[in-house]
Design a protein around this nucleic acid. Structure first.
Lengths: 343, 343
DNA sequence: GAAAACGAGGAAAACGATTGCCGTCACGCT
DNA sequence: AGCGTGACGGCAATCGTTTTCCTCGTTTTC
């Protein structure tokens, strides 16, 4: 391979400006149209011609100009993802799931962080439309339904995690009630009868939905304690629970953070987990469930799956399928030591 | 408002396909060239004409096709951001910072998650080049220098958090040694003499750099303990420290997670923080520093600032400035209760 | 009062790729 | 011999903007 060094594809490293298809065509001694066909496997060309063009393309490190292509074809192979809340713990798995599903279709993702600001959101919407994305995924931290991001948009929109207030819009959401029921049933399955529920703010949609489902699934030993989504609240709630003298043998917490605070406080009060009190969290957030002692049983909303599913629906919508409507996806319980049955 | 409904700008909501500039021009009764000038404030036009075009544009909800524009101008007002490791706790602030700086320049960000896979990385690099991004930011979880993402690329590249092995490339990194020194000096300032250092894996660049700086800054009371970046290791390390009977009055931990584990274990062993042992973490990760009891003093690498700075440098590079070289940015110590001086 | 300057806006050529249409050639059939 | 038929590739239109000339009037200026 003495000349291997020379002809090795200079891919991406042709210092300076990038090559165009005309240059490839010239080098291969064909017309630009033919070069295009060769590179895209269209039309009918001799194998030898295709190979020649391919080689010229490699040699020049040619990468087709997406702008020119999309101008012609009308497709950009790009979707926009708007996170209405800031990018964070919830958006990431959604993003990863979406990328997963889209990457397979060679589609890439434009991420826009609206930071809870309607102005920013509209601004991003405009940019996305100007960029002629093939579709848009809207996500956010809260599961509560929100106003549609825009009406009669020229591209399909799918809501992931959050849902659109318009029932005709396509939304993929976690079935939080299902998650809560799983938590309760699991506690019952490990023999607990006196279950309490501690969760986030009462004005928070997720908190109410989960609490309602939990209450409906079992006779809770105490009224639901609403507070914040923090460890501090978990600790505080433990104090409340203990001070009321209520006889509790399990607590279903609305988040892993609350559960972790609860675990600490119970431990310090001399209650052993899971022997005296079993504990279930919500979110299955690795750093919390692993950091907690004992490791925390938790409900996983499968955010990645939601992202993937949303992306798949979006692809379908882009292909013209009708995918309207709200889809709730079940949760999954991940059992760990905090609800283990003693050996 | 009987006709208000009709003339209200239908922005973004002209159901179906979007309007083109020719349609705007036709509606305003001018040529497309003139319409373009009117909307972009170029050329010399009568104010009345500009207004007419503007109104037509609003009425049709016109948004310029970015593909067509960039085909013509060569600029896309888009930069790519490649995270070599998965998107996570470190990339987010970087991304936010970058978006911040770029958003001001009306530039948006294409996020690509290479997931530590060189194939994916090259694939994304190709897409970004094909999309003719104006520049690329490369980030990753580790601060260690990495091979350049490509040689002689047609667009400028800036490395954020990680750095490029090629010293001519532009990299913006946290000065971790500075962070370590600040931690040690702070402990000394609150009167601690017998300081230990517990950190992550010895093969991890950050761990070594920080440990070296710490050791150079004070006579550590024990050799650095290398382990993992986890709470579990923090707990374990506390056990080691205590069992050796070393007389320790402060521990500088290589991460907030380690520090938190350490705090718990020390507490359980009857050591009071900060009275008996003061504690400093690293990363200033909200959920850890707040969850820790007492709240954890920590070193903040100002990731958002790094992202912002990288983006600004990239913009400068896009404008033709030479911004090569490696820039280390100082860290910041955030004091909290874990090192508080007793009142 | 003629020439120059200027202001306003139109015509058309880019930008880089895709694609439908058409020409050309070679071959095989009647 | 004449014609039809594929195979192969070139030509040129097209996508939607921007931008560079131009071309007109209409003022100014000497």
């Amino acid at each position: 391979m003495s000349d291997g060094r020379e002809t090795r594809e200079e891919t991406l490293s042709d210092r300076g400006r990038a090559a165009t298809i005309s240059e490839v065509a010239a080098l291969a001694g064909v017309s630009t149209g033919t070069a295009s066909k060769a590179l895209n496997g269209r039309g009918s060309l001799r194998a030898e011609t295709v190979a020649r063009v391919q080689q010229a393309s490699d040699q020049l490190g040619f990468v087709a100009n997406a702008a020119a292509r999309s101008l012609q074809t009308g497709r950009t192979y790009t979707v926009g993802m708007i996170t209405t809340d800031s990018i964070g713990r919830f958006s990431i798995p959604l993003l990863i799931g979406a990328e997963d599903a889209l990457g397979a279709g060679q589609v890439s993702v434009f991420l826009c962080d609206a930071r809870d600001d309607p102005i920013r959101e509209q601004y991003y919407l405009r940019t996305l439309l100007s960029r002629k994305v093939d579709g848009i995924i809207v996500t956010g931290r809260r599961t509560q339904a929100r106003q549609p991001v825009g009406a009669g948009l020229p591209v399909p929109v799918v809501y992931a995690f959050i849902s659109s207030a318009d029932p005709h819009d396509c939304s993929v959401v976690p079935d939080e009630a299902d998650g809560a029921r799983r938590a309760i049933r699991h506690l019952q399955a490990v023999g607990r009868q006196k279950i309490a529920h501690v969760t986030g703010p009462g004005h928070h949609h997720s908190a109410r939905v989960r609490a309602a489902a939990a209450a409906e699934c079992a006779d809770l030993v105490a009224p639901t304690l609403y507070g914040r989504w923090s460890e501090a609240w978990g600790r505080q709630a433990a104090g409340i629970l203990l001070s009321t003298g209520a006889d509790v043998d399990a607590v279903f917490c609305g988040s892993d953070q609350i559960a972790r605070g609860m675990a600490e406080a119970l431990h310090e009060a001399g209650r052993e987990i899971p022997r005296d009190v079993a504990l279930v969290g919500f979110d299955n957030w690795d750093v919390m469930v692993d950091g907690c002692r004992p490791a925390l049983t938790s409900i996983d909303m499968d955010l990645e799956g939601i992202g993937r599913s949303a992306a798949e629906l979006l692809l379908a919508a882009i292909n013209g399928d009708d995918v309207g409507g709200r889809r709730a996806r079940p949760c999954r319980l991940v059992p760990r030591a905090s609800t283990a049955v003693p050996a």
